[in-house]
């Protein structure tokens, strides 16, 4: 699949959708573009017709208004045509929806290379990583506040993933409803207390420069070979999208996507420390 080059941060983002870095981001944005053009054509059409009628049929005593109670065939036409378009749009969207949200669907990822658990609270995100044994609920788990580090999915210049890096988030909350919103990944899922929700995403990043010698974000922070790295200070912002109280607007988290090797190293250090702490107790 050809990766659509998203607009860069800054000005372009201000007027349009933000760039997207997940494998399903492109599908979501494509749907947006379809809806955008369908609604735009309808909107402009309706407004133009209305304006035209307003000018053409301005009160004029020399003329008499057309006497008609309607047209059966017109009614049928303007019911059937939008119906066909809308149903087609709906049917076209079901697959994307299932891919992102429905674990029983065949397009939903079968395997997750990384699993983390996020317990939201007023007003912070507690992210628990599985640690060295890759199992949640053991002594080497470690918990970070407002830090979501994941390995990225390397893609080549053509936009094909070289290895899978699917991240599963087991999402819940300990108090009120929160919502995990990662704009650049097109991810949003409510964190609901008493319910363990499933969210998955991947963060795709080019490992080699694209044809125009630019990397995915076109940012000079990347080294020439495209390895993006840990000392990369900028990270993606995660926001809370469901009103959770007075600190709602301050409830945020940073997402950092790093190469698998660096992530493993980081995870190992943290995990070992956690294990040592657990042993000390």
């Amino acid at each position: 699949m050809q990766q659509v080059r998203p607009p860069e941060f800054g000005e372009a983002w201000k007027w349009w959708l933000p760039p997207h870095y997940s494998s399903f981001g492109d599908e979501v944005d494509t749907l947006f573009h379809w809806i955008f053009w369908i609604t735009m054509v309808t909107f402009v059409g309706v407004e133009l017709v209305m304006l035209y009628f307003c000018f053409k049929y301005k009160r004029n005593p020399a003329r008499k208004a057309t006497y008609t109670h309607g047209s059966h065939s017109l009614e049928v036409a303007w019911t059937i045509i939008p119906a066909v378009i809308l149903v087609a749009l709906g049917v076209a969207s079901t697959k994307t929806w299932a891919t992102i949200k429905n674990p029983t669907d065949s397009d939903y990822p079968q395997e997750f290379q990384t699993t983390v658990k996020i317990v939201a609270q007023q007003f912070a995100w507690n992210v628990t990583y599985a640690g060295d044994d890759k199992t949640l609920g053991t002594d080497d788990d470690f918990t970070e506040t407002n830090i979501l580090n994941v390995p990225f999915e390397p893609i080549d210049a053509e936009g094909n993933a070289t290895t899978e890096e699917n991240v599963r988030v087991m999402l819940t909350s300990q108090d009120v409803i929160h919502s995990l919103f990662i704009p650049v990944l097109r991810v949003k899922q409510d964190a609901v207390p008493g319910y363990l929700g499933n969210v998955w995403f991947d963060v795709q990043r080019m490992t080699s420069p694209g044809p125009d010698k630019k990397h995915l974000t076109g940012d000079s922070r990347y080294s020439e070979d495209g390895r993006t790295l840990i000392d990369w200070e900028e990270s993606y912002e995660i926001a809370c999208a469901e009103l959770c109280g007075l600190g709602h607007s301050q409830m945020r988290m940073q997402l950092k996507a790093v190469p698998r090797a660096d992530w493993e190293a980081w995870s190992h250090t943290k995990s070992a420390a956690a294990k040592a702490r657990a042993a000390a107790k």
Partner: peptide, 9 residues
Amino acid sequence: LGTLWGGQI
């Protein structure tokens, strides 16, 4: 729109 059409607005 149909109502506007041909009217005396």
